[in-house]
Design a protein around this nucleic acid. Structure first.
Lengths: 122, 122
DNA sequence: TCTGGCTATGTTCGATTGAATATAACGACT
DNA sequence: AGTCGTTATATTCAATCGAACATAGCCAGA
């Protein structure tokens, strides 16, 4: 199975993306690395962008998903909160449940595809 | 139930969005109105943008989802093909199946939300 | 034949987005 | 005390995106 079509899900809260594939991955890297900037480096994005994503995530929920402390070299850093773990786990479940639920339809769509995808990402 | 969180799904084929909420709605309006430009007007988007969306949709699949003929005032226009109907129906089923499958998780997420969504759409 | 409205495509411009850069404050460790 | 790496934020710049405008070809009906 070569995984031709990919299903991506975003969860919107008002005009903001409360969580989606990018924020989930970022959350996971922060949990593993204990730092926003390290997670940003690992994902090849700027620290500023990562910080903005964390900020909107935190604003979307009643309790912050990531708590950060200033100071480097063992001092500061960022940690994911219990609420953050919960949200991440829920999102992973949403991905998985959804994938299983639409398996049949995705297979039918894959049978209708062109030989090659278009270049433009519109 | 006021529907606070919204789940949106995109289906990617390579770098292109084969179908998503916007393309599905466009497809539906084209089917109803028999014209790309009329559908674009109804959705408040430029004809050019609508045409580009149709173009990438057509490029993503082996058979075109929309067939168009030049000429106005009863002459030309656009119609959705059988494949187009099929893709649209499959996408609607994907939306619905997925919504049902993640109902529990969405409810849990809604219970964790902030009182008001952030302004920035990051 | 002329007109209206549609497809199809190019071009220009403004807004939005993200990257890059620059600071400032901070905390732990040497 | 000084250094390092981090958070937090502002600013500048490049790229991308979409809207607006322009143009050409086409077809049906008046």
């Amino acid at each position: 199975m070569t995984q031709i079509l990919r299903l991506r899900q975003r969860i919107l809260f008002g005009k903001a993306i409360a969580i989606g594939p990018g924020k989930a991955e970022l959350l996971q890297h922060i949990a593993e690395l204990g730092s926003i900037s390290a997670a940003a480096r690992q994902m090849g994005m700027s620290y500023r962008r990562a910080w903005l994503l964390v900020d909107t995530m935190n604003q979307c929920f009643a309790a912050p998903l990531v708590e950060a402390a200033p100071g480097g070299s063992g001092g500061g850093g960022a940690r994911i909160t219990a609420e953050g773990e919960k949200v991440l786990a829920l999102y992973r479940r949403i991905e998985e449940q959804s994938r299983a639920a639409v398996h049949q339809e995705m297979a039918e769509l894959e049978g209708m595809l062109a030989e090659t995808p278009p270049a433009n990402p519109h």
